[in-house]
Nucleic acid binder design. Sequence first.
DNA 1: CACTGGTCTGCAATCGATTGCAAACATTTT
DNA 2: AAAATGTTTGCAATCGATTGCAGACCAGTG
Lengths: 325, 325
Amino acid sequence: MSDVAQRAGVSASTVSRVLSNPGVVAEATREAVMQAVAETGYRMNHAARNLRKQRTGCVVALVPNLGNPFFAKILDGMGRELAGAGYDLLVADTLEDSGRHTRLDRFLDPSRADGIILLDGLAPFGDLAGRADLPPVITACEWIEGADMPRVMLDNREGGRLAVAHLRDLGHAHIGLIGGPPGNVLHKARRKGAMQAAGQARITEFPGDFTLQSGQQAALAWRALPPSDRPTGIFAFSDEMACAFMSGLQRAGHHVPRDVSIVGFDDIELVSHLAPALTTIRQPKREIGRKAARIVLDRISGREIPAVTLLEPRLMERETTAPPP
Amino acid sequence: MSDVAQRAGVSASTVSRVLSNPGVVAEATREAVMQAVAETGYRMNHAARNLRKQRTGCVVALVPNLGNPFFAKILDGMGRELAGAGYDLLVADTLEDSGRHTRLDRFLDPSRADGIILLDGLAPFGDLAGRADLPPVITACEWIEGADMPRVMLDNREGGRLAVAHLRDLGHAHIGLIGGPPGNVLHKARRKGAMQAAGQARITEFPGDFTLQSGQQAALAWRALPPSDRPTGIFAFSDEMACAFMSGLQRAGHHVPRDVSIVGFDDIELVSHLAPALTTIRQPKREIGRKAARIVLDRISGREIPAVTLLEPRLMERETTAPPP
DNA sequence: CACTGGTCTGCAATCGATTGCAAACATTTT
DNA sequence: AAAATGTTTGCAATCGATTGCAGACCAGTG
């Protein structure tokens, strides 16, 4: 910077002002500086600016599983929104290969990130509500019950309701649920909506954990039931489970949706290109990412933000649902 | 830090040394400092350290499409490797919503990142080979032809060869290729391998761009051919295209693999849970990410690194391939 | 001409760590 | 006992930008 200053015949202070607050500098000076900047190819040093300004220009997203396509889309939305505001997106996995949580306090540090977006409802973050020495933390998609943190997520209850209401409307009187891990907040919310919409219908629950494997398990469990006890309409709490469940049945000779109807959750891109295309509850993933980013940015700049931001789910009616046999 | 120093009755220099180079400090002093650190809950300021050390502790990954599950898995591997070495992973999309490239020079800046992993073969980075004022750049998965940058990727030619050899072994004499964008390096490499393995076989090429949509298009194109001109074995250059192609045929009443055999590329997790499960060429995605990270880290610390690192593809023989009808 | 008020610019301190150098002290050798 | 060597520690400069304060300059006014 002092090179530029020398070349423009001014002090470093003035260069700094031209670059960050051009209004206060006289026209002529400003131009001289700009030219010197161009000539020297000067680029500001971020570490220095950040040190002085006590900020980092980074927002970190803590994801339980970076490899999950669902989160990938959300990160996409976040990245775009943050980039637009001049922030960088740092990502980190909250889980080790072993499945244990990593040391996350590494990121709970105002000198590492200006804000934190937590996408893992099981992260051990319950106790950091009031801590003023931390950068602002919000949760997105998932959230931590009882923790006083702003949240951005889909209206999962409504999503569950939509899915089961759809099956009920088609006439299904026995509905199967392939859920998430029992303690998971998404599981609980979706289940609540599902139960509400179920009304008089009979319900059979299959355990699950959102993964392909558990969908496959559920297919085995379904087939193990006596035919008269098999639910005719299945609501899987994730598209992956829905896919694996469907292929499990198909492979055994069952036909979807003639024999069984299936509704998924998430609407990951691929499922609309299966045969049959999966009926599912759509989460606006990019939008969730964008909104979460918007909200941390607001908090970072001290604006008031809502405690809860709910996005609307949407039923994508495709080819895996039909009236029961 | 000076608080800690005062509390421990030493100078800030000593505290610094205890924290970053404990060996040179006397046992007793070190313990006093450690205790003071614990008592005050002191945490180092990264901006300050980075400024002084002229580094950032970040590596940035530039991805053409963050939402793509394929890249998500790769980032996963990278993140783990980098975290192990104390580096943070910054991610950014190289493409705007519009599909145009973003201003990437924002990241070509030693004060922003210590290293850059480029996953977009079309990024306008051809001219930065020798520039010493930039952090080290390597390419992973894709690469830029003619640019002198270290690369890490699958042996794509061999992948193409494996796929077509498999179809040939099954007896297919007419093979269809669903390719990537014509200029794409992955397309060219895979096509070369495919051609090599094809030998005497007849080849029909369908245009594609790795997306689900183009797989669907290819299905239409295939069906538009007179039955005798339809290839019986299809090699799609991505799993997504393979999926969409397959469902396009299934929806039209064709049976896979009885009527047509299909081989994909990538082995994204979901395709092994379809009915029928997709035969495909596996890319070790996490491994690619890990290796790429390892290599930038090596370059950052000045070690010699190989110009090209090739990983081995593997044929995952599943249920979508069979002898021709 | 002196004075007021406003605009523009520079000085110097600051952000918080790291590190070369030298001083202080301890230990071993002659 | 003096000298040589080795170990620990502190001083002060440094990384590169930002910003409060005050001085310089200018125009307008009485």
